[in-house]
Write a protein that binds this DNA or RNA. Structure first.
Lengths: 230, 230
DNA sequence: CTCATGGCGATACACTGTATTTCTGGGATA
DNA sequence: TATCCCAGAAATACAGTGTATCGCCATGAG
C-alpha cells in the first residue's frame, strides 16, 4: 500500500463567509431568477452541505436580505452632485439599471425594510441630497414619495418586460393583436378609454417613460421645497 | 347484509368552479398570508384532491392572477366623480384599503400585468378619469406615474407594518431604541442625515403620509394637464 | 497519547407543485 | 337490461424545498 494507492485525505472544507455565500446566491439568481436560489444549490456552488449555511444565516429570508443589501452597493453613486434634483435622479436611474442587471431584485425591492449597510447608505444619500432645503419632515416625505414612485415604476417595467418575453412579442403587438384575450375584451367596448390608449397611444421606450414620470415627481417635490424652508 | 350494513355510496364530488377555488385561496391567504396558499390546502378546503384544480388553472401562478383580479373588484369605485383628482385619489385610497384588508396583495401588486376583467376595469377607470383633459399619451403617462407612486408607497407601508409587527414595536421605537443594529449604525455617525430624520423627525401616521405624497404627485399631474391639452 | 469539543455532513421530516397512473361511476349503445 | 366506454376524479409518484436533529471525526488542549 504505497502512497499512491492511498487517496489524499478529504480536503478540509473551504472556509466560508457571508460574502461568498451571498455572491453565490446572486450568481444563481442572475442566471435563473429568484426561484433558482435554493439553499442546496447555493451551498453546492460552494462545495458545502446545505446546513453549513445556517451558521451564517438563520433563514432563507435573511439570505435574500443580504442579497438585496449587496446589490445596493451598485446603486450608491460614487459622488453626489450638488444639485438635489440631479442627485435623486441619478439614484433613481441607478436603481433602475441595477434592477435591470438583477431582475430578481424587482421581486424584493420594497418588500422589506432595507437595514443593511448599503441600503442605509443609499437612504442617507437620498436624504442628504435634500438636507437643509426644507425641514426634516418635508425632506423625508419628499424622499419617500420619489422612492415610492421609482420602485413602483421599476416593478411594473420588469413585470411588463417579463410578460413580453414570455410571449415573445412587444407590449404593443401583444396587446393589440396577439393577446387574444385582451383583443377580445377591448372589442366589447366596455373599456373605451383603454382601447383608445392601446390603439392610438404612441409606443415610448421604457426608459423615457420612467424619466418623464420621474421628472414630474421631482417637479412636485421642487414646489414643496420652495415652500416654507422653515 | 341489510341496507344498514352497507355504507352510503361516496358523496358525488362537489362541483367546482374558479369562483369557489379563488374564494378558498383568498380565505387562506387572508388568514395565513400568501405562503399559506398551497394547492393542497386550497383543494382540501373544497373537499377535493389537489389535482382537481388543474382543470381550472394550469399553474399556481394563474391562481394568484385570479386572486389578484378578484380583489380588484374591491378597488373599483362604484361611481366616478367628475373631478379627475378626486377620481384618482379615490382609486388610490381604495387600493390602499384593499391591500390593508388583504395584505398578501402587496406581494403581488405590480408583479405581473393585470389583465383580468376587474383589473382592466380599474385601469379603464383611471384612464377615463383623465380622458379628454390631455392627449392620450399624456393621460397614460399620468396614470402610470400616479399608479407607480401608490403601488410603491403601499408596498413600503406593508413592509414596514410587517417589520413592526415582527418586533412588536412601533416603527419609531424600533428604529430609535430597540433595533440594536440600527441604533449602533446610526451611532457611527456615518449617516448623519438619516440619524437626524430618525431622531428629530415627527412620526406621522401612514395614511396621512400616503395622502400627502399622493397629493404631491397629483399636483405634478395637474401641472402637466394644463399644459397643451391638444 | 488521550480526550473533549466544535463544526461539519448525513440523515430525516413535512411539505411543496405537478406528472402520471389507476380507478370508477354514469351514460351510451346493443 | 347488460355491456362497454370513457371523462374525470383520486391515488400515487417524483423531484425538490426549508429546516431540525443526529452522529462522526479532525483538530486542539491537557
Amino acid at each position: 500500500m504505497t502512497v499512491w494507492d492511498r487517496p489524499e485525505p478529504p480536503a478540509r472544507p473551504v472556509p466560508l463567509d457571508r460574502e461568498r455565500i451571498v455572491a453565490a446566491a446572486i450568481a444563481l439568481a442572475d442566471e435563473g431568477g429568484l426561484e433558482a436560489v435554493s439553499l442546496r444549490k447555493v451551498a453546492g456552488r460552494l462545495n458545502a452541505g446545505p446546513m453549513r449555511l445556517y451558521g451564517y444565516i438563520s433563514t432563507k429570508e435573511e439570505l435574500f436580505d443580504l442579497m438585496v443589501d449587496e446589490v445596493h452597493a451598485e446603486i450608491l453613486p460614487e459622488e453626489q452632485p450638488g444639485d438635489w434634483r440631479e442627485a435623486l435622479r441619478i439614484i433613481a436611474h441607478r436603481t433602475r439599471q441595477t434592477v435591470l442587471r438583477h431582475e430578481w431584485l424587482a421581486e424584493l425591492l420594497g418588500g422589506r425594510p432595507t437595514l443593511g449597510p448599503n441600503g442605509l447608505a443609499v437612504t442617507e444619500a437620498k436624504l442628504a441630497a435634500l438636507d437643509g432645503l426644507a425641514d426634516i419632515d418635508t425632506v423625508m416625505r419628499a424622499v419617500e414619495t420619489v422612492s415610492a414612485y421609482f420602485t413602483g415604476a421599476i416593478r411594473r417595467e420588469i413585470a411588463n418586460l417579463r410578460a413580453e418575453r414570455a410571449t415573445g412579442l412587444s407590449k404593443r403587438d401583444w396587446q393589440r393583436a396577439s393577446g387574444p384575450h385582451v383583443t377580445r375584451v377591448l372589442a366589447t367596448g366596455r373599456f373605451p378609454t383603454l382601447a383608445k390608449a392601446v390603439y392610438d397611444g404612441t409606443e415610448v421606450d421604457a426608459e423615457a417613460s420612467f424619466a418623464t414620470g420621474l421628472d414630474w415627481v421631482l417637479d412636485a417635490v421642487a414646489v414643496k421645497l420652495t415652500r416654507p424652508p422653515t
